[in-house]
Amino acid sequence: MSIQHFRVALIPFFAAFCLPVFAHPETLVKVKDAEDQLGARVGYIELDLNSGKILESFRPEERFPMMSTFKVLLCGAVLSRVDAGQEQLGRRIHYSQNDLVKYSPVTEKHLTDGMTVRELCSAAITMSDNTAANLLLTTIGGPKELTAFLHNMGDHVTRLDRWEPELNEAIPNDERDTTMPAAMATTLRKLLTGELLTLASRQQLIDWMEADKVAGPLLRSALPAGWFIADKSGAGERGSRGIIAALGPDGKPSRIVVIYTTGSQATMDERNRQIAEIGASLIKHW
């Protein structure tokens, strides 16, 4: 068994979910400061990975656009189908120029040979490839089937209604394609530690997140040497930005962190900087 497989195998399969305990108010002060700096709502939650206990939260039950963070949930649904014998990671999917949508850096290079389901999930999570996400959504039956998958695992909040790139529209008070920080954190924890997926599929999902190549300016920029992070970022219209992550010291994950913001006029660089500063405070007061 590899070190990575050993790491995931040791994560307990508890489903406990406790009331908020504000253990590190310094980080919450930074979250509130980020709201002021961005002129926007910021949602934040931090869960203990083992117990599910809420360590910190701010606007945990307010809706925020999911943006590309939904791609982790999508690949979780795909892996669930693989575990059930309904899908194969090695199955090759062919597509055409007409299937390509905005921001598809991986799929646009494989119009001739197509891509396997495994490769599409990797592209969707590590590079946030939008066409890969749409092709994967098609394999499970579309956005409503992803919502149904989430409902079946106990998440009655998170919903996907549209395809890429329309799902990033982020209209105020529009519940389409949204989640809440508390719901997303709990669902991510179930996918990474629960019995919904096999150990091999849980390991595959966290491996894809660990290999994320487009979230460098966010939490990763604040991470000390030797820390572990597996994450997925998202960006949308109307100043929307977000990240979901499993992270921790000593090379293994010990907490789930979810950060969303929407409604800002700030630049992407400024949104990234504020999320990175929240991450720096989190690590400082770990």
Rank of each mutant, 00 (worst) to 15 (best):
R162T: 08
A215T: 06
T178W: 00
P12S: 14
P217W: 05
D155N: 03
L223V: 14
L247R: 00
M184T: 01
M115L: 09
E35A: 08
T131A: 12
M209L: 07
E145R: 13
L135T: 07
G251E: 11
P65A: 05
T186I: 11
E169V: 13
V78T: 06
A200T: 14
L49G: 04
L100S: 04
F70L: 05
K232N: 00
A133C: 05
E56V: 08
D177S: 01
L247Q: 01
A182S: 15
N130S: 04
I140S: 03
V78W: 01
V42A: 06
P65R: 01
P249G: 04
F70I: 05
L247C: 10
R238H: 13
S254C: 13
T178Y: 01
R238T: 11
L150S: 05
K109S: 15
H24S: 15
R92S: 11
H5R: 07
P143S: 05
I244M: 10
R202W: 02
E166D: 12
P181C: 09
I278M: 10
P172L: 13
D83E: 05
I93G: 01
L47Q: 08
L38D: 06
R241V: 03
L197V: 04
L137G: 03
T69H: 08
R159Q: 14
T179G: 00
L197Q: 04
Y260C: 03
G263V: 04
I206R: 12
S240D: 06
P105L: 06
A235G: 09
Q88V: 12
P249H: 07
S68N: 00
N173T: 15
L73V: 10
R189A: 15
L136A: 04
Y44H: 03
A225N: 13
G242R: 00
L55G: 07
V82G: 04
L218F: 03
L55A: 07
E175G: 12
G239T: 02
M268G: 07
L218G: 03
R159V: 06
E87C: 06
K252G: 10
Q37R: 14
P253L: 09
T179S: 12
L146A: 05
A132V: 00
Q86A: 13
M180R: 12
S57R: 11
E145K: 15
G239C: 02
T178A: 04
V31G: 01
R159A: 05
M268S: 09
H24P: 12
T69E: 01
A124V: 09
F14S: 01
D33A: 15
S254R: 12
D174A: 04
L247W: 07
Q86E: 15
E87P: 01
T158Y: 00
R220T: 02
S233A: 06
L38E: 06
M66G: 06
F14G: 06
G263T: 06
A183P: 08
A15G: 14
K232G: 00
A200S: 14
L188A: 08
T187S: 12
N168I: 04
S80P: 00
D161R: 01
N50R: 15
G248W: 01
E87K: 01
G239L: 01
T178S: 13
E166Y: 14
K284G: 12
P65L: 02
K252I: 11
T267S: 13
F228V: 07
Y44E: 00
L79Y: 01
H110Q: 10
A77V: 10
W163V: 12
T267I: 11
I93V: 11
D250L: 10
A222E: 15
D177L: 00
D83V: 02
S254V: 13
A124I: 02
V101H: 07
R81I: 07
A15S: 15
S96F: 07
D99Y: 08
L136V: 08
N134A: 03
K109N: 09
E237Q: 15
A40V: 06
R41G: 05
S80F: 12
A148S: 12
E166C: 14
N168K: 02
L10V: 08
L89C: 05
R189S: 14
L282V: 15
E61R: 15
R63A: 05
V8D: 07
A215H: 04
A215Q: 04
G234R: 00
R241L: 02
E195G: 13
A225P: 08
G226A: 09
L38V: 07
A15E: 02
K53E: 14
E175R: 13
V72W: 00
H24Q: 14
A211V: 07
K144T: 12
N134E: 01
K284M: 10
V258T: 06
K109F: 15
P181L: 02
I244K: 00
I54Y: 08
M268A: 08
T107R: 00
R41W: 06
G236T: 05
M127K: 09
F149V: 09
L150A: 11
W208R: 00
H94E: 11
D83R: 02
G154V: 02
S80A: 14
A215L: 02
F64C: 01
M153Y: 11
P105S: 06
I229S: 02
Q86Y: 15
S240A: 13
G90V: 11
T131R: 01
D129A: 00
L223S: 07
M153R: 08
L137R: 00
A246V: 14
E87I: 09
S221N: 10
F70Y: 06
R92L: 11
A170E: 08
L223Y: 02
G236D: 02
N173R: 10
V21D: 05
L192V: 07
R220C: 02
W286V: 01
E56A: 14
E175T: 11
E35D: 04
K213E: 09
Q86L: 09
T186D: 09
V214S: 06
L218A: 03
R220V: 02
D212S: 07
A77R: 15
V29G: 15
T261S: 11
E175C: 12
E166S: 12
K144Q: 12
D99G: 07
A200C: 11
M180N: 15
Q4A: 13
A215G: 10
E166L: 14
I243A: 03
N173H: 14
P217H: 09
G85I: 04
R7C: 07
T179M: 00
Q265R: 11
H285D: 06
K53N: 09
H285R: 12
M268R: 06
M67E: 03
L218W: 02
M184V: 08
Q4L: 10
L160Y: 01
A16V: 15
L247A: 05
D231E: 04
R159F: 05
L38C: 08
L135I: 08
Y103C: 06
F6Y: 06
A182V: 13
T186S: 14
Y260D: 00
N152C: 13
R63D: 02
R91H: 10
G226W: 05
T158A: 05
L19V: 15
L55V: 13
M115R: 03
D129H: 00
L38Q: 06
P224R: 06
E26V: 09
L89A: 06
G226S: 13
N134T: 03
A185T: 11
S96V: 13
L136F: 00
